[in-house]
Computed example of a mutant assay.
Amino acid sequence: TATFVRLQGIGHVRVHQHRPVRGTVKTVSVKREGHRWYVILSCEDVPAEPLPATGAVVGIDLGVASLVTTSDGDHLDNPRHLAASADRLAVAQRDLARTKRGSKRRRKAVARIAALHGKVRRQRLDGAHKAALHLVRDYDVIAHEDLRIANMTRSASGTVETPGRNVTQKSGLNRSLLDAGWGVFLRILADKAESAGRELIAVNPRNTSRTCAACGHVAKENRLTQAGFHCQRCAHTAHADVNAAINILRAGLALRDVAQAA
């Protein structure tokens, strides 16, 4: 059956509905991405769809090598969609630079770049939905780092008064963080957790990557490499992200106990 949306001043427009509308529609907005148009519905009083309890809890560490590493030792891949499209984007940017302003070729070049970026956004969104769904299906309680992503990806160049250091390396790291899409993933995870009746706990990330999950010793030297963790006190060895995820889980459960006792 065809689905139509009535837009003021335009009339009824046929749309491809990708999922049922639940709750009460409050606002309707229209967005254009390249040659594609989207109708976005905002709803309230959306009925929850709680999932059966699993009795399992997990801590997750967000990263660049793996988007998510769990305290159980699982790694969810980070596809790096922007990096995968870097060559095509570079070619499209060079083609744009050769065009004249106001020309038909320039409009086509701009549309091509917008289409490439739109594809990256859709791929990143799809990956975030799948990763979040995997977690809310398997765990009743999910603890994650309370990350300030905007601060983490602040301009590497700094200001005239206080110029940045290691600008090239920091800029590359910023691109990797934004390509991973941590903010998108955490937002989707929060929405799915609420709908599924799961508990999401945000914890302070301070020292979670430097603390030994076996003995609690905190030292910068414990983190040997990006993936290697070796405690300088008890000699505990583990994957660094798994070790951090265990610490995040413990911190989350401690916060939960405090909240329940209050």
Rank of each mutant, 00 (worst) to 15 (best):
A213E: 11
H117T: 05
A202E: 01
L173P: 07
L96E: 10
V13Q: 09
R121E: 11
G252Y: 03
R137Y: 07
I113M: 12
T237G: 08
A90P: 03
A150E: 07
I10M: 07
V46T: 08
I10S: 07
L82A: 03
E161P: 08
W37M: 08
A53D: 11
A111M: 12
W182I: 03
H236I: 10
A156S: 15
V141P: 04
V141Q: 06
R223C: 12
G118S: 02
V203R: 02
I10H: 12
R94L: 11
D191P: 05
V258G: 04
L82E: 05
A109E: 09
R223L: 12
G63N: 10
H134F: 05
V15R: 06
G158C: 06
L41E: 06
D179F: 00
G252T: 04
Q123T: 00
A262H: 14
D77H: 10
F229H: 01
L76C: 04
Y139G: 01
A251H: 04
S176N: 15
L200T: 14
D77M: 09
A235P: 00
C212T: 10
V28M: 11
R121G: 08
R210G: 05
N204W: 07
K220T: 13
R98T: 13
D74Y: 09
H75F: 15
D77Y: 06
S29F: 07
K130I: 11
T69Q: 05
N207K: 00
A90S: 14
W182H: 01
T159F: 09
S42T: 15
L76N: 02
M152V: 12
S155T: 06
R88N: 14
K130D: 08
S85R: 13
K108R: 14
G73K: 08
R154Y: 01
P163M: 04
R223M: 10
L224A: 12
K170N: 07
V64L: 15
D179L: 07
G181L: 10
V46P: 01
S171C: 04
P52K: 05
T159L: 11
G158R: 08
L125E: 14
A244E: 10
A213S: 15
Q17L: 15
I60V: 15
R124E: 02
